[in-house]
Simulated assay, not measured.
Amino acid sequence: MRGMLILIVVAALAWSVYWAVGSTGATKAFEAWFEGRRADGWVAEYSDLTTRGFPNRFDSTFTDVTLADPDTGLAWEAPFFQVFALSYKPNHIIAVWPDHQLIATPQAKYDVTSTDMRASLVTRPAPGLPLERLTLTAEDLAVQPDTTVQPTTADSLTLAAERTTASDSSYRFGLTADGFSPALDWRVKVDPGDTLPDSLEALSLDMTVDFDKPWDLSAIEDARPQPNRIDLKLAEARWGRLELQAAGEVTVDAAGIPTGEITVKARNWRDILRLATDSGALPQAFAGTLEDGLALVSQMAGNPKTLDVPLGLRDGRVFLGPVPLGPAPVLRLR
């Protein structure tokens, strides 16, 4: 019994020393990271940093955090931010955001509120801590730009990402948003007759993206990884009587210009076309001709209410067959 007691005491002391060394190391690593950002010209400040959680966790809490990258114009402010890690598994991290935070871009500032925003993050034990998998959830999410009267909201949002076996820089993403409600000013533009409900019945995304480098610490410190191939397995949105689905594959060049084909399936497509015309997104003079052409396409497919349209992306534009519809989106992450 005496030997067992000595063994327990020694083990407890050894673990206490391990935790003390680990917590001190975690604090110093965070301090060094902020110092490194300031040396790069960032605004990187906090009023306090503490690490607790003995005996099984390293719980680090930042108070009054401010980060601003002068190269991209992105900035973030929060009254606190927490990073939790198991002391016996430090590469599995839980991040917790406050109920209110501020995100600024060169275009606008956004007030972001939620009742519970957190992420579970697993990294590989390698330099730069490359991402292995991530799950981010938020409840009662509201994003309020300083240019709009009402926020865009969602009852709940889940974003999941996982590295695929294809390469170290290939990730599969999944996104679902329940009770997604666009901002009022945007709804008025899209649906001036107020014929659609306030929120979408479904909004989801499933895709695999190959980037030019892995998502790791350098994605924050230096530059975001840029997509060079996107395999869109399914994007879906249901809003009242309208339903859109999209799938396809594109490659993306160094300037962010996509090339490939996306097939769009639209149910009740005439209503969608009418909304585009009423909102001014589609010129009235072109609407009739486009509707006649799409009607022929849908009839050939056997269902006049459903439209399957392959959209080609090439030379920086979107094409319906040989007809150019407009400029293609530029796929660059700031």
Rank of each mutant, 00 (worst) to 15 (best):
A223C: 11
Q284E: 13
E45R: 07
A108K: 12
A281P: 00
V149P: 09
L67I: 11
T259N: 13
W97Q: 13
L13F: 00
A219T: 11
F319K: 00
T61W: 06
V330A: 06
R187G: 01
P227N: 15
R314E: 09
D140A: 01
R224M: 14
D140S: 06
L196P: 00
G25M: 01
L159C: 08
P304H: 15
Q284W: 06
K28G: 04
T61F: 05
P324A: 07
T66S: 08
K109C: 15
S199E: 01
P182F: 11
L311S: 00
G179V: 03
V43W: 06
W42A: 08
V209T: 14
R187E: 03
D168V: 12
I8S: 01
A266V: 12
G41T: 05
E31G: 04
K28R: 12
T24C: 02
A255C: 14
T289Q: 09
E291C: 12
T113S: 01
T148C: 08
L203R: 02
N303H: 14
T277C: 04
E243C: 11
T27P: 02
D206R: 06
D216L: 00
T152Q: 02
W33M: 08
Q107R: 15
D146R: 08
I220E: 09
Y110N: 07
V122N: 05
T208S: 09
A29C: 03
Q284A: 12
L203S: 01
R163Q: 09
A160T: 11
A142K: 04
R241K: 13
D155A: 00
A266C: 07
V252Q: 11
E162Q: 11
Y46E: 00
Y110T: 13
A12W: 03
D315F: 15
S16N: 01
D178I: 06
Q82S: 13
D222K: 13
G293R: 07
D231L: 14
N228G: 06
A75I: 08
H100T: 15
R163A: 10
A166N: 10
G312M: 02
L331T: 14
W42C: 09
L203Y: 02
L203F: 13
L5F: 06
T135M: 09
P258I: 14
V190L: 09
A255P: 10
Q107D: 15
L49I: 04
G73W: 08
F58M: 04
L184P: 00
L74Y: 15
E45M: 06
G240Q: 13
A104Q: 14
I93F: 07
P55L: 09
V323R: 03
L200T: 02
Q245L: 11
V252D: 10
W15C: 01
M207I: 08
P125E: 04
V112A: 03
V297T: 04
L157D: 01
A285E: 05
G36M: 13
Y171H: 10
A281F: 03
S298I: 13
N91Q: 13
A39P: 05
T306P: 13
L294N: 10
V323Y: 00
G193I: 07
I94K: 05
R172A: 07
A39R: 08
I220W: 13
K189R: 05
A78S: 11
Q226I: 12
D69P: 07
